[in-house]
């Protein structure tokens, strides 16, 4: 075969092809970014229209009393700090329970494994609302001292007890997701099991489960509304209190729902950023 003569010709046409290629790539890029821009615009407009329909129809139908909401808004929104405190404290305690629970679920000791799996099964097999009422109404029957416990503390305990079990399974999966090679490397370095868990496995597991903890926290914000049932005066309790006594539950519940919604949206944004930052981190797992 002769590559000599044809080579020059091929080179020229390749040159032209490159220019043409650059043109095509540039036009595709322009078109893509136009498409993306249009998508965003229409997307935002859709939201604006939907929110407008929702609020507007209620206002136009005369079902919502703006003045009434304005009057009680500060009282109802005054429950937000307590909602946040309860959620944060419950997640914090749940994380401790889940750490212990997951280590128990991975334990070679049958008693410890038994306790951990019993806890998870009991909690996951019963409704959260039953557990909450049990803490509030049933436990004082066993020991009167429970009746004198602060209701906020009681609510946090019940929520943490429940979430701790679900998060136990998340933590267990996170620990098991740490590659086997890490355990072998630690073993080969003669590290004892406890040190391996503390120094090698858990720090890596935390990074794996952080997004899932974010989801649990968002869910907790909403489930914290349940403690209104045991008369803790957080966001939902206040909304109901005002709504029921004035026969204007529509206004107050709508306000409460809106506030929960905004809180979860803000948290989602934070979670999104955290995940992006972790993905960009130089620590690769």
């Amino acid at each position: 075969m002769n590559y000599g003569g044809a080579g020059a010709h091929v080179a020229v046409s390749a040159q032209m092809d490159l220019e043409r290629q650059a043109e095509i790539v540039a036009s595709i890029t322009r078109a893509r970014s136009r498409q993306r821009g249009r998508f965003r615009t229409v997307f935002v407009l859709t939201w604006v229209v939907l929110v407008g329909i929702l609020v507007g129809s209620l206002l136009l139908a005369g079902k919502i009393d703006g003045g009434f909401i304005a009057k009680w808004a500060s009282y109802i929104l005054g429950g937000v700090p307590l909602t946040i405190i309860i959620s944060v404290a419950s997640i914090a305690v749940a994380i401790i329970l889940a750490t212990l629970g997951s280590l128990g679920r991975l334990s070679g000791n049958p008693v410890i494994y038994g306790i951990a799996s019993f806890y998870v099964s009991l909690v996951r097999g019963t409704p959260l609302i039953v557990q909450l009422l049990f803490f509030y109404l049933a436990l004082p029957q066993i020991w009167e001292g429970f009746a004198s416990i602060d209701l906020v503390v009681l609510g946090i305990s019940a929520l943490a007890f429940n979430y701790g079990a679900y998060m136990t399974e998340i933590f267990r999966a996170g620990i098991q997701a740490v590659p086997r090679g890490q355990l072998e490397a630690a073993a080969a370095l003669a590290m004892p099991q406890g040190t391996t868990m503390r120094r090698i496995v858990l720090p890596q597991a935390v990074r794996i489960i952080t997004p899932a903890i974010g989801n649990e926290f968002i869910a907790m914000i909403k489930d914290s509304a349940l403690v209104s049932l045991i008369t803790v005066q957080e966001l939902l309790w206040r909304a109901q209190e005002i709504g029921q006594s004035n026969f204007r539950s529509l206004d107050t519940l709508l306000l409460a729902a809106l506030v929960y919604w905004v809180m979860t949206i803000i948290l989602s944004v934070f979670q999104d950023r955290l995940e992006k930052r972790m993905a960009a981190s130089e620590v690769r797992l």
């Binding site: 072998e184 370095l189 890596q204 690769r284 797992l285």
Partner: peptide
């Protein structure tokens, strides 16, 4: 008897120097 693995198995959450000193200090 120390071992070097096919897949390196460095600790990804520790800097190079901390990978090296972790076991000497703790073990």
């Amino acid at each position: 008897a120390q071992m070097v693995f096919q897949e390196f198995n460095l600790f990804p959450h520790l800097k190079v120097i901390d990978n090296l000193i972790e076991a000497p200090i703790r073990v």
